[in-house]
Structure formats: C-alpha cells, structure tokens
Design a protein around this nucleic acid. Structure first.
Length: 227
DNA sequence: GCGACAG
DNA sequence: ATCTTGTCGC
C-alpha cells in the first residue's frame, strides 16, 4: 500500500510540532468503513548496537484473526525519541513495511496513541492521514490525559480526558491486567475503536495484530543481529 | 523551577 | 524501545 500524502521527514522537533498541528485538521473521528475483512498490525523494534530499526506489518483476516500476510523492513533511525513526536521516529521504517504488502488492509492498528495526544495527532492519526485509511491507536501506557481506573473485569472502561475533552478510552482487555489506552486514529469513532480492539483481544492483553507483529519484529531483529 | 513523558 | 530467565499463579 502507498501513502496518498507525504511530507519531509528530516525535521527539527519544532517543525514536527507545527506539521502535527497542520495535519491534525485532516483527522476524521467518524466511522467511514463497512465490514472489516482484513486488519493490519504494525510494530517497530530498535537495535541499539547497530542503531537500526526493524518494522513488521502483519495482516490478519477478520474476525477469525488468521495471518494473511507479513511484510518486514529495516532502516536507520532518523529521529530521536521525543514524547509526542514518536511518529517521526517510527513511520519512516513502518512505511517501508507497508509498501511491501500485497493486501490493502481495511484497518491499521498501531502500537501507540491516536487522538489521545497533546495535539490530538498521535502515531495512529499520522499513519491514517498519510494513507487516508481507517486506523486505531492502542497503547500500553498513557501519554497524556486524566482518567479513573476502570473496574478489573474484561470490557470495563473509562474515558481518558484531555483539556476537558474526551480523547480516548482506558480499556480492560483482560480481567486483572493493566488497561490499554485506546483512541481513534482516522476514519473511526471512539465506540467503534473500543469494540474492534476488544474483538482483537480474544486471549491476550494486546490485540492479536500488535502481538503477532511484535513477535515477528523481535524475531527479525535477533535474526539480523546474529549476522 | 519541577514533574510527566506513547515506543 | 533495549538490558534479561525463571518462576509464581490462574
């Protein structure tokens, strides 16, 4: 799959922030897709010894969650890790993995925030807008916003609020585990984003898409590192 | 000034 | 993210 929009990536943090504010205006928080047939999970792994990034895009069938296709890529890290600017560090590698896909997935599930971001433009929004594709952010921890702890039972959830606005949902994807921070990326609403992520978590805390992409990208990194 | 801070 | 194995518990 190819982006429908692109921009420079060799930016300074200040320029990156200005670009986020500009692109944030393109995000849609409405559900703009029909029946899901394929869902793509993305994950990036970093090897500090070689300063290299590895990315994996794993496409699963939906709702049976069987692996349909896996694409991988490697690249040098172009941007430092700055809270709030993660997409500028991970998308350059991720897009190479996405470029290798034969399947055009109906939805992208990202390992990070979507709308639940200081400028409402997290990794999932950024990818969704560049590809003009439905996307959801499912992060393991909070970047910003306040929330009340949801009940411990699977499916329980609370709103994540930022500046008095609903920016995401804190969701218990398994009973007794720490919650996931779910927010829309692009072309999806809060309710649908939460429901879909829960349907992607039949046995683990993380969505099968993310879990499998994570497993594959780590296998790839160790394999390349052993050469 | 101080603490927080996706991966 | 990465550094790292086994172990306790449902």
């Amino acid at each position: 799959m190819e982006p429908v929009l692109d921009h420079r990536w060799d930016l300074t943090p200040k320029e990156a922030i200005a670009l986020q504010k500009q692109l944030a205006g393109r995000v849609s928080l409405r559900k703009e897709f029909g029946r899901l047939r394929t869902v793509c999970g993305l994950d990036v792994s970093y090897d500090k010894t070689s300063d290299r990034f590895y990315a994996v895009a794993a496409v699963l069938s939906y709702p049976d969650l069987k692996i349909v296709e896996i694409s991988q890529a490697a690249a040098r890290s172009p941007f430092p890790y700055v809270p709030g600017l993660l997409s500028f560090r991970e998308i350059p590698v991720a897009r190479e993995a996405l470029a290798g896909l034969q399947t055009l997935p109906d939805l992208l599930v990202c390992d990070g925030q979507g709308y639940a971001h200081p400028r409402r433009f997290g990794l999932a929004c950024h990818l969704g807008v560049l590809y003009d594709r439905p996307s959801i952010g499912a992060a393991k921890s909070r970047l910003c916003g306040e929330f009340k702890e949801p009940k411990s039972e699977k499916g329980s959830w609370t709103w994540l609020l930022g500046d008095g606005e609903k920016i995401g949902q804190v969701v218990r994807t398994r009973t007794g585990v720490s919650p996931l921070f779910i927010s829309p990326g692009h072309r999806v609403d809060f309710h649908t984003a939460r429901k879909i992520v829960l349907s992607l978590c039949p046995k683990c805390r993380l969505p099968e898409t993310t879990r499998l992409a994570h497993q594959e990208v780590n296998r790839l990194r160790r394999e390349m590192n052993a050469r």
